[in-house]
Design a protein around this nucleic acid. Structure first.
Lengths: 137, 137
DNA sequence: TTTAAATTCTACTAATCACATATACTTAAT
DNA sequence: ATTAAGTATATGTGATTAGTAGAATTTAAA
């Protein structure tokens, strides 16, 4: 399941993607438009900025705007940024790999093999969902 | 990501599936064989019993054994029993559906549609992984 | 038939951590 | 001076991951 953070991030990106090019959206505007608690959204937008999905302008008439094409922002990326691994266990993860502490020999782990199959299919599906694909209904 | 509980459940089921038919496995035996904290495993086995995956015999020479065919126990079922919904949000879930409190009109939710596509693909993949398929490498 | 041993089962407890937010303040732009 | 992002920290809640203690049940030996 997605955390609220990831869900709000997606909603915020959808909001930004729906605005005119060159439009800068204030946090409060996004918060009200997408129904997200404002203070929580601030942190999320900063995370999105650090992830190079959006950029910001401070001060009066400041706000946030997309810097990555909505065709190139995938569900997989947002999941990884906010909720981490897509695989069901760290030992089956590409980007968040960690060995299982309770696993005697990883190569003999029956579970891991199956989980890697799931990961590949889920990842493929999640990379197919972009902000752009969501916006155009 | 799977909880430890779900992971341990899968490992316990794998352990049981690898034993001879008619063999009854004690908790301590499963715990040591699959490297699972014993007392935690007790709770998990009881959950599996309530889910009609295993049954038990009490008292001396008691223990646990599979009552559902290893061909019919899927990853999807275990996920749902221990970790709940397979979908990424409750509004996109089949078995754990709940509307989003922050969603104005569900039918207009751009996100939900995409998440339902993911759910269908993930579910299909997870239903394809059975305990039997994991055991035979 | 009693007793002891082995094992499941039940109920609490507790520590740790993640999650979802709020508060208060600083920095920067207009 | 005002507006808005940025930072750092705090807080409450709940889930997770166990551990503790003991009750109930079964088997088999005495």
């Amino acid at each position: 399941m997605l955390s609220h953070k990831a869900k709000y991030a997606l909603k915020a990106l959808l909001y930004l993607a729906e605005q005119d090019e060159n439009h800068i959206s204030k946090t409060i505007e996004i918060a009200e438009g997408a129904n997200i608690p404002k203070k929580f959204l601030e942190q999320i937008l900063l995370d999105l900025k650090r992830g190079h999905f959006v950029s910001s302008k401070q001060g009066k008439y400041g706000g946030y705007y997309l810097i990555k094409s909505k065709n190139d922002i995938t569900l997989a990326e947002i999941h990884r940024l906010f909720d981490g691994a897509i695989a069901l266990l760290p030992c089956a993860s590409l980007n968040f790999y960690e060995p299982c502490s309770d696993c005697k020999t990883e190569s003999e782990c029956h579970l891991r093999h199956g989980l890697m199959l799931i990961r590949d299919k889920t990842l493929q599906a999640m990379q197919g969902i972009t902000i752009a694909s969501l916006v155009k209904k």
